[in-house]
């Protein structure tokens, strides 16, 4: 289950998260970003390095309750 969420309309598409992703699980175009759910291991490195706090890690107990808005 994907626990990482991308806050809509906040990403600057810089690629910092893609650079640290060990699974190549982030698709980043000029103005579009998405997480490839099948590859993501929820390691949260992308969350920690994001300069703009665009990525959020939802703790498992909360994650089930909310709708992902990627």
């Amino acid at each position: 289950m994907l626990l990482i969420e991308i806050k809509p309309n906040t990403c600057d598409f810089c690629g910092c998260c893609v650079g640290v992703c060990p699974e190549d699980a982030i698709e980043l175009q000029e103005a579009h970003i998405s997480i490839i759910e099948e590859r993501c291991t929820n390691c949260a490195k992308c969350v920690w390095v994001c300069p703009f706090e665009v990525l959020v890690f939802n703790k498992p107990e909360k994650a089930g309750a909310r709708e992902r808005t990627v």
């Binding site: 910092c16 640290v20 390095v49």
Partner: peptide, 11 residues
């Protein structure tokens, strides 16, 4: 892949 410690995250 860049290690976390080596990634300088910038604004």
């Amino acid at each position: 892949t860049t290690h976390m410690r080596d990634m300088e995250t910038c604004a």
